[in-house]
Design a protein around this nucleic acid. Structure first.
Length: 811
RNA sequence: GCCGAAGUGGUGAAAUUGGCAGACGCGCUGGACUCAAAAUCCAGUGGUAGCGAUACCGUGCGGGUUCAAGUCCCGCCUUCGGCACCA
């Protein structure tokens, strides 16, 4: 079989017959399967794409044969940092390089032979797409879900540019090696925290990997407690969030995040120098280091004191970088006796340690962080921690110094990027009117082509006067555009809504269509997106629902993460390690079906693993054996109709395979699905080797085998299907159905254990009751010899699996 | 550091969710066909001891629960993914 020729042949036929095109007439049988779209990189398709798209396409073809109207779109997440970096390095414009890369990738994606519905293709960098990304921003703004506030960015003082976290290596700029510092800028945020509770609750509704749901749950990080107000001698006040109000009497200091505005205000002259130095040091540290529990806690006394509202005790105020301004209130109370970090901090700075909780029947050495009985807390002594938390907050509520409060670790989503290659933020800033949204009729705010993106201290768009200078849509006075672009996660937070109506020029999508086509039935992509992309998409769906556009709560009903294919050295593939394996040479040499089938068979889909080509020849051999058998029998006819032991065995093998391949395909357990196909092929060959054959029956089984194979090796099976005399594409055929009758065996082998050690195996009629099984087992020669004379204490019977006889050992 | 996973023969991996560990492959060994090789086919293949029936050991390490543990519990070790401006 000339593999290259037949691939082209069938791809052309599928295209012509619109086999890959979703037919809206059958929307009631729709199956929307979505793979995460690709970032258009220069290096064509890599194995990761193949691993994501190849096996998932087999799943989709399987669904099609099961009678679903499949929608499997593909597109490109085309804005982003790499294209801009590439432009800075080479001078090639991001638009040009991106378009070239997309053209390249599209072609190789087509060569894969997947059922992508190219009519629905999306490119996020095209005006007809980002117009609606901007529309989304305006809608969120209208709804009060977009707002501006100050937030720090990584700033390289030497390059005078904002750096992505990725561009900061060990605290220094990856380009020039200068120390990177934090700098505050006014930036746009989406209020995802408004949906924190629903995002948490609805996880229960989802058919997602448990680990992904758990990661999102921890990311959202709900904790219940209270907000307590501390006042200062200067007349200011600040709130702390705590889950341990029961320890409030044990507070010996309070900590403000170094970024907290009160730090500057309250610092005394004597402490000014020390505090300034500390803040500067902190601006060089990243968040992961700041939160490290093993790192030594640092802080600085700011010279001021705060009043504990429960006992009016005066406690010192510190600034310390283990407190984040972005979490809670940016201030915490320090209770050294009952918190490990506070304990370490108190030891270091010689602060008092007052126990207020006594452990119950346990080692309550300090720091004691569990619940217990309250002591040293006038008015609350003797209460349990649980009771005291409520009671202490209630007391504070009465005097206006506290409130019950639920806090989330989840932060609002920062969407401003000081970059060129993204969708411009559709906002105009006017000195008179402030931040004014661009009117809908003026969308899209076009990204200009002729822009200087070499870093020199300004956002690239800021330097483009034609872009920047506009009239205020409200007052008509001189104004300027927002120079920032949207985070690319905004583009990918709604793309699944655009696919089913991707050509719509009037709206981002027609709600009529979208509410029938969504939610996505199966979403397949990398686990690295567990917290960010997948959470953003859920948020956007809920927000659009509340605006009345959508009638569903969740975008992705069911989710699968494929694993990662590593380099042959077991490490993640990367240019710098030089361990990148390109799929192209394998496609050239063996064909797309062989590579796809190998990826399905050689790895556990959700695990992935190091690349090795050792098994590829096995797939070639497997397909050769299939071809030989099909060709051998295509013209043979016979009238033999015997149904004997061999035929029953063949029927058993066929139906066993149908049942299990079906189940495994549904479960994305592709490696075992292919293994079951191999077993069936072995059974077919075994029957082929017999002297006398029921050819009609054999050919029926062979046909069923081809139907099971079709989704996994589409081009190859089409060709054999045609060779066998069929006129229509195999993908119009129905998936075989298991005949359970053929799977009923007269006898099954069960293992017999004596005192939990396997002694023998016995054939037992499968209809036998437990009593009968026990009788048969005990009358077996070998068993009775072993048991002989010993007292049988118990017999455990697991039907069709094993029998365990427990006997007394006679010494 | 925090959150989440994974660790099974020489090797890729299976294991009906607590019930015969190693399905299906790769590799290797022996054999058939061949002048020979390739391809193909047949047989064997976790380790140790034994001619053998068989016995003992064996799922990262150390404990535990159970008639029974790769699977459950406790404590370690190693590797991988994410940590909010890579996408």
């Amino acid at each position: 079989m000339d593999i290259k020729k037949i691939e082209k042949k069938w791809q052309a036929i599928w295209e012509k017959e619109k086999l890959n095109t979703f037919n809206p007439k059958n929307v009631d049988k729709k199956y929307y399967c979505l793979e995460m779209f690709s970032y258009p990189s220069a290096a064509k398709l890599h194995l990761g794409h193949w691993y994501n798209y190849g096996p998932t396409d087999s799943f989709v073809r399987y669904k099609k044969m099961k009678g679903y109207e499949v929608f499997q779109p593909m597109g490109f997440d085309a804005f982003g940092l790499p294209a801009e970096n590439y432009a800075i390095k080479t001078g090639i414009h991001p638009k040009d390089s991106t378009e070239k890369n997309i053209a390249n990738m599209e072609q190789t994606l087509r060569e894969m032979g997947a059922m992508f519905d190219w009519n629905a293709e999306i490119k996020t960098c095209n005006e007809d797409y980002y117009k609606w990304t901007q529309w989304l921003f305006l809608k969120l703004y209208e709804k009060g879900l977009a707002y501006r506030k100050e937030a720090p960015v990584n700033w390289c003082p030497s390059c005078k540019t904002v750096l992505a976290n990725e561009q900061v290596v060990n605290g220094v700029c990856e380009r020039c090696g200068s120390q990177v510092v934090k700098k505050d800028l006014t930036q746009w945020f989406f209020k995802i925290t408004e949906y924190a509770e629903e995002l948490l609750q609805d996880l229960d509704k989802l058919d997602w990997p448990e680990k992904t749901k758990l990661m999102q749950k921890n990311w959202i990080g709900k904790s219940t407690g209270g907000e307590i107000e501390f006042s200062t001698e200067s007349g200011d006040s600040f709130k702390v969030f705590t889950t341990r109000a029961d320890t409030l009497f044990g507070v010996s200091y309070v900590v403000l995040a170094p970024e907290h505005p009160l730090v500057k205000k309250l610092t005394t002259k004597a402490q000014l120098k020390a505090v300034e130095n500390y803040i500067e040091e902190t601006s060089k540290t990243n968040e992961i280091d700041r939160l490290s529990t093993s790192r030594e806690k640092t802080g600085v006394f700011i010279g001021a004191y705060a009043i504990n509202p429960i006992n009016n005790k005066k406690v010192p105020i510190y600034a310390a970088d283990y407190v984040l301004y972005s979490y809670g209130t940016g201030a915490v109370m320090g209770v050294p006796a009952h918190d490990e970090r506070d304990y370490a901090f108190a030891i270091k700075y010689n602060l008092p340690i007052t126990r207020t909780i006594k452990g119950v029947n346990c080692n309550d050495e300090l720091p004691f962080c569990d619940d217990g009985i309250v002591i040293n807390s006038v008015g609350f002594d003797g209460l349990t921690s649980e009771e005291a938390r409520k009671s202490i907050i209630n007391t504070l509520v009465k005097v206006g110094k506290g409130a019950h409060k639920t806090n989330y670790r989840l932060r609002d989503w920062l969407i401003s990027r000081q970059r060129y290659w993204g969708a411009p933020i559709p906002v105009i800033h006017c000195d008179k009117c402030g931040a004014v949204p661009v009117p809908y009729k003026d969308l899209p705010v076009k990204l200009p082509y002729d822009v200087e993106f070499k870093p020199d201290g300004e956002s690239p768009l800021k330097k483009h006067e034609g872009f920047m200078n506009v009239k205020c849509p409200v007052c008509g006075g001189p104004a300027h555009r927002d120079p920032d672009t949207l985070d690319t996660f905004v583009c990918s937070s709604w793309y699944y809504l655009r696919y089913p109506d991707s050509k719509n020029a009037e709206m981002p999508f027609d709600p009529e269509i979208i509410n029938k086509m969504l939610p996505v039935d199966k979403y397949v992509g990398g686990a690295e997106h567990a917290c960010m992309h997948l959470l953003y998409a859920r948020f956007i769906t809920k927000a659009l629902r509340d605006m009345g556009y959508l009638k569903f709560d969740e975008p992705f009903t069911s989710l699968v993460h494929q694993g990662v294919i590593l380099g042959p050295d077991g490490l993640r593939m990367s240019k710098s390690k030089g361990n990148i394996i390109a799929p192209d040479p394998y496609v050239q040499k063996y064909g797309a079906d062989v590579l796809r089938l190998y990826l399905m068979f050689g790895f556990s889909y959700t695990e992935g693993g190091p690349w090795s080509e050792d098994g590829i020849k096995a797939i070639v051999k497997f397909l050769d054996r299939i071809e030989r058998l099909v060709v051998k029998y295509k013209d043979i006819k016979s009238k033999e109709t015997i149904i004997g032991k061999d035929e029953k065995e063949l029927l058993y093998a066929t139906n066993y395979a149908i049942k299990n391949v079906d189940k495994d395909m549904e479960a994305f357990s592709f490696n075992t699905a292919v293994a079951r196909l191999m077993e069936l092929l072995n059974a077919l060959y075994k029957y082929d080797g017999l002297e006398k054959q029921n050819v009609t029956l054999f050919k029926e089984c062979l046909t069923k085998f081809l139907l099971l194979l079709a989704p996994c090796a589409p081009h190859f099976t089409e060709e054999l299907w045609e060779i066998s005399g069929n006129k229509k594409s195999v993908f119009y055929s129905e998936y075989p159905i298991c005949d359970e009758k053929c799977l009923v065996l007269d006898e099954v082998e069960i293992a017999v254990q004596i005192n939990s050690k396997i002694k023998t195996k016995i054939m037992i009629p499968s209809s036998a009751t437990n009593e009968e099984i026990e009788k048969i087992v005990l009358s077996d020669d070998k068993v009775s010899a072993e048991v002989n004379g010993k007292e049988i204490k118990k017999v455990i019977i697991i039907p069709k699996r094993l029998v365990n006889i427990l006997v007394n050992i006679i010494v």
